[in-house]
């Protein structure tokens, strides 16, 4: 949280600091919109905090100050970020942006006149993947795909897996491996200037903001990872790169949008991989009992190796 408070203008920071400690701990998002009240999302619920007896309405000056802090007074240095629509700040937190979009030849060039900021608090949940390690490791890490709709904790789980793989576990006789992360959306490692902000272990190499397919090839060619970690695969180039990696003897852990294994069959770009039995383990996530609920884990033949017990 400290990193976020540091970039907020004093007036907004004071409002948040006045809130109860319990609420502060649960903050998921801080939403700042020009000329509209400050909104804070706590555990999925919206809260409009009071300040001096009224709502705290964001002034254009405050949003200008926030942008100055976010860009370190240098908008020109954010060109790439303004194209993608978000900025990653110290601590791995992400700030989503919305406003007037400038296009060039039909492609987004930048966002100008930024009117909305959405500060998403990054919370690394260390240890959530621990209990699934026995299903995913068998002498070596198995090629694993995490399937789930948005907001089910795929990336969070992926991040913790990356941490376990790179640090290893002496008690379980789990050796540590070199891990290469291709982090197209800067979400897994949350890099600032190329340095991971999350605690991921020492043997991690990150290609930050790199297109997945190209990034995977770059990693394979030059960084000799034992395990590759990628987020949200889906395009045709991705599956080609995955195949390349698998043939090179590199294990891959990846995530994908969907509900069940059957959804993968409906994706023409992923289908060939399934038919070849590339994915040794398929983990299906839901939001049923909050983000990060694992429904079941299946092997490459579709057989269940783990099933959540319904209570």
């Amino acid at each position: 949280m400290k990193e976020i408070l540091d970039v907020l203008p004093d007036t907004i920071r004071r409002v948040i600091e006045q809130m109860d400690t319990d609420i502060k701990k649960g903050i998921e998002e801080i939403r700042i919109r020009i000329l509209r009240p400050l909104e804070i999302i706590v555990d999925g619920k919206s809260i409009i905090p009071d300040s001096d007896g009224g709502k705290h309405v964001i002034t254009p000056q405050e949003s200008g100050q926030l942008l100055n802090k976010l860009s370190q007074y240098s908008l020109y240095a954010l060109e790439e970020e303004l194209k993608r629509g978000y900025i990653t700040i110290q601590g791995g937190h992400r700030v989503g942006l919305a406003g007037k979009v400038i296009t060039e030849k039909g492609q987004v060039k930048a966002i100008k006149h930024i009117a909305s900021f959405n500060i998403r608090v990054a919370k690394q949940k260390v240890g959530i993947a621990d209990r699934f390690v026995p299903y995913l490791y068998d002498g070596k890490w198995l090629n694993t795909i995490l399937i789930g709709p948005p907001q089910t904790g795929k990336t969070t789980l992926l991040r913790d897996l990356a941490r376990i793989i790179s640090t290893g576990d002496i008690a379980r006789k789990l050796p540590s491996f070199k891990v290469g992360i291709v982090d197209e959306r800067s979400e897994i490692a949350g890099c600032v200037n190329g340095v991971p902000q999350h605690h991921l272990g020492d043997r991690i190499d990150v290609l930050d903001a790199c297109p997945k397919a190209e990034g995977m090839m770059m990693m394979i060619r030059s960084m000799s990872p034992d395990v590759l970690v990628v987020d949200e695969i889906g395009r045709k180039e991705d599956s080609e790169a995955i195949l390349e990696a698998v043939n090179a003897g590199i294990q891959i852990i990846m995530t994908m949008h969907g509900n069940t294994m059957e959804d993968l069959f409906r994706r023409p770009s992923i289908r060939p991989l399934l038919d070849m039995g590339v994915f040794d383990r398929m983990i299906e996530l839901t939001r049923a009992n909050g983000p990060g609920t694992i429904n079941r884990i299946r092997n490459q033949h579709g057989k269940e190796v783990y099933c959540k017990k319904v209570i």
Binding site: Q72, Y73, S74, A77, E79
Partner: peptide
């Protein structure tokens, strides 16, 4: 610094 290095102003 600005055009080629994309260095933030303070650093520059």
């Amino acid at each position: 610094e600005i055009v080629y290095g994309l260095t933030p102003l303070g650093q520059a």
